[in-house]
Structure formats: structure tokens, C-alpha cells
Computed example of a mutant assay.
Amino acid sequence: MTNLAAAQEQVWLYDTKLADAKVAIAEQQADFISSAHAHYQKALALETHSPVALRGLGLLHLDQQEPAQAKEFFTQYLQLNDIKDRRYIESLVKKI
């Protein structure tokens, strides 16, 4: 569901203004991203070559328009053995 669709649903369900709903959803999304980043960092602290954490941080940074950081995590991820989405991540790195 897109942010706009979620905002429209919130307006319909709770009779709020669309602008207020968009702000609330943007705040929720920022909290989610911050929480995900913290959890991936904790995972890396426990296992420095965690494929889930390296891939997740790369995707988070890519989504946040931070290509240098995304490329750094993707590069580490691609150095691991037995990753199933190597071609996909390589295609992302080429676009950075």
C-alpha cells in the first residue's frame, strides 16, 4: 500500500484531514526505518558478516537516497558465499 493510499484509508476510517494523515504516516515510516536500521546494526554487532543485515542496510540506504552507504553494504554482502540474489544486488550496484 502506498503512503497516499494509506493516508486516504486513514482519512476514511477516522474522519481526519488528508494532510494530517499524510504527516502521521510519514512519521510512522521514519520510525520504522530508524528501527530497522538500529536492528540491522545490532545484528552486525553480533555477526559481522550477517547476510540479512548487510543486504537490509544496503536496501535501506538505497531507499533513503544514500548510494555511497548502500554500495558499501552491498559490496560486503556480495563478498559472501551462497547468496541467492547475487544478480539482483549486482544490478542495483551497477545503477548506483
Rank of each mutant, 00 (worst) to 15 (best):
V23S: 08
L18Y: 10
V52W: 11
D82V: 01
K42M: 12
H61W: 15
L78F: 09
Q79W: 05
Y77D: 03
L59S: 04
R87L: 00
Q8G: 00
L92F: 15
D31V: 13
P51T: 06
K42I: 15
H61L: 08
S50N: 11
A5I: 14
L4C: 07
T2W: 05
H49F: 08
Y14K: 10
A5R: 05
G56Y: 15
A68T: 15
A43L: 11
L57N: 01
K94P: 04
F32I: 13
L80V: 03
A30Q: 14
L46E: 02
Q65W: 05
E90H: 03
A53F: 08
I33L: 09
H49V: 01
R87Y: 03
G58M: 03
F73M: 06
S34H: 10
K42L: 15
D20S: 13
L46F: 01
P51M: 04
E66A: 11
A19K: 12
R87E: 09
L46T: 01
K22S: 07
Q79Y: 09
Q29V: 13
L92N: 05
A24Q: 15
F32K: 10
K94Y: 02
A6N: 10
D15P: 01
I83D: 06
T2A: 05
Q79K: 11
R55M: 10
D31L: 13
L60A: 02
E90N: 06
A21S: 14
Q10I: 12
Y14A: 02
E27P: 03
I25F: 01
L57S: 01
Q41S: 03
T2G: 09
L44Y: 03
L78S: 07
F73G: 00
V23F: 06
H39N: 09
H39L: 14
V52M: 07
I96F: 12
Y14S: 04
L92T: 04
E72S: 09
S50R: 00
D31T: 12
Q28L: 11
A24W: 05
S35N: 10
P51S: 04
A38Q: 14
G56K: 09
H37K: 10
Q10S: 06
K95N: 09
K94H: 03
V11Y: 02
A6Q: 14
F74Y: 14
M1I: 14
S35V: 11
D82K: 04
L80C: 02
Q65L: 07
T75S: 14
